[in-house]
Design a binder for these strands. Structure first.
Lengths: 343, 343
DNA sequence: TGACTCGATGTTAGCGCTAACATTATGTTG
DNA sequence: CAACATAATGTTAGCGCTAACATCGAGTCA
């Protein structure tokens, strides 16, 4: 005999035998208890408990061709920006039968493509991916995926399927206009990583300055290194060394901004009087810092919540009101850009 | 006829037909190409590409009773401490056939138990869980899981299976001894969340002070709220209001520590001269801050790396040198605890 | 040349579960 | 009370893949 032995764990058949019912009744008890009479249900539940039975999700997925997996691909696990959104996704998904499968693309498009391929192997119930800058092949796979797809963190008129986020370009523009309004004149930019979203922020920022006649490309300093507070301090130092007349900077994210502040403090430069600083995302630390730091607030938790909502609606066959949801942003003006009037 | 239709995606049988081979040969091409002749392999690969075939991982898992899933359960997605470890786990796992399945227990033991149950439903190849404070039922499930289990972030003489981390108690004690050595006298503690690991840090810290005769429980302030910089500033304010003679604090993590620093700065209190501050974990921001903040450095990335290493070894049948790996910690003394000598 | 090894490929029977239909017991109606 | 709903449970046949064994042809060796 060449029967293959299972891993040893009890199966639904073991439960059925113990409870003296058929396997399908056990299956029903698990998935839709209302369909089973109380007497049987209790017997079955007792058997499940006695055997310590745990349903085999792969077998279930195969038989029902429903995996209940939501694939989520983000470019970073350490960036707090995604942490909030992920938390929201997990919070929303946990009480449902859905399960999250998380992938980290490390800001590499090819890696994202690889992950999409792997995730499709699980026949996911839905996919969530960050942004709209997929490779051609990745985009094609997403378009052919027979499940809802939500792109998050951005808005774009041409989504694969659905999209929820905000405009990085407009956020950057608002930052630029704010610094001009606050009376700053020689306004710079420091940016690390410079992924496509950071790039759009920078472009919006430049446009904001340009309309006020304050755009000076020489004051823009970018690097492909990943962002950190240390790097924020460093770039701030470099930029000031190059252009001592600099009087304000927009940092491409809050880590860079707080780092820039620390850099100024270590160098004995007063913020906001000598230099104004504005960040992006408005992490919790921005309000706490001393001086508190101006930033562009984005509702990252809400993005995650909305994405899962859209998925749920789509899985229930609802047509969404809108395929693209713009959650906007809000400028939080704080001490770091409020310098005393100078004349 | 009542044949069930698949989801429409091509199956291994479609590929086999197109390449005019049997399904098993396709399967071999995918899993172990060396076993298939070049001629057939090329034909099969062409068919795969032409059909855009993606193997169905659930079917594979069912047939082989190998899921290649590593379940990882952490208590928080927003806490940077876990972000580094997660990044390491993903980095290590990605080039292998293993896949990470991540769960968020939200610092709730019952939630952790629920996740363990769900994860076991996937017949994981291995499990990684944070810490050693599982519920009784959860611990029993882990002990009965027929896969390697690694508990991370802590060390304990009695692991479920394997363990890698460091001693929070000793870390706390080192913090206490450092503050005493630096000449601080009325030394307090502020702690948020107070999960079991934070609690052990506090106990070690108290012990460190006690041996120097500097333990004053009245200077210990804890809350169950989750930690944040704002909360760090707040608790610092409350503690100073209650005991204006306070001259140093150990914060149960770096967020709280930086928050406490900001709180002091907003209140015009000099750090380190009037108040010394020490944190725990040594996130990147600690060195960048102004003044730079003393902290207990832990190698969180290495914890994740080691955990996956241990798993890989166990899956390959190796006996590990040691079941419990203590990666230790290192006190990083910085400006925030270096006050000018006073006499 | 027969006995044997070995590599490449195929056949068959599940893995554990559920969809779809089938059956049986129980009530309900004119 | 025949005719027919309806609820509760069962039977059967896969879902897509792979383990285990089977086969086949080519090479090896005494």
């Amino acid at each position: 005999m060449r029967k293959r032995k299972g891993a040893g764990r009890p199966t639904i058949a073991d439960v059925a035998k113990k409870a003296e019912v058929s396997t399908i009744t056990v299956s029903r008890t698990l998935r839709d208890p209302a369909k089973v009479s109380t007497a049987l249900r209790e017997r079955i539940e007792a058997a499940i408990a006695a055997l310590d039975y745990v349903p085999h999700s792969h077998a279930s997925a195969l038989a029902s061709s429903r995996s209940n997996i939501v694939g989520v691909i983000v470019p970073s696990l350490t960036n707090n920006v995604f942490a909030d959104t992920l938390r929201a996704i997990y919070d929303e998904v946990d009480p449902s039968p859905l399960q999250v499968q998380l992938g980290n693309s490390r800001y590499v498009a090819a890696e994202e493509e690889r992950l999409i391929r792997i995730f499709l192997g699980q026949r996911p119930s839905a996919l969530i991916v960050a942004g709209g800058d997929q490779t051609k092949a990745a985009r094609a796979m997403l378009e052919n995926a027979d499940c809802p797809v939500v792109q998050i963190m951005e808005v774009d008129p041409d989504p694969v399927d659905m999209m929820v986020g905000f405009s990085h370009y407009e956020g950057g523009r608002a930052a630029g206009m704010h610094l001009v309004q606050q009376g700053y004149r020689r306004i710079g930019f420091i940016g690390a990583r410079m992924d496509p979203r950071s790039r759009r922020r920078m472009e919006g920022f430049a446009e904001g300055l340009r309309t006020a006649g304050r755009h000076d490309p020489d004051l823009f300093m970018i690097t492909t290194q990943s962002s950190s507070m240390t790097l924020g301090a460093e770039l701030m130092g470099q930029l000031r060394a190059r252009r001592p007349d600099l009087d304000a900077v927009f940092c491409n994210n809050d880590d860079m901004a707080l780092g820039a502040l620390f850099g100024c403090q270590h160098a004995g430069i007063s913020v906001p009087d000598e230099i104004g600083i504005i960040g992006f995302n408005d992490l919790e630390m921005m309000a706490a810092a001393c001086p508190s730091l101006t930033s562009i607030r984005t509702d990252r938790y809400e993005i995650g919540r909305t994405a899962v909502d859209m998925i749920r609606a789509a899985l229930e066959g609802e047509r969404p009101d809108q395929k693209v949801v713009d959650l906007g942003f809000e400028l939080q003006a704080r001490q770091s850009t409020a310098r005393k009037a100078r004349r």
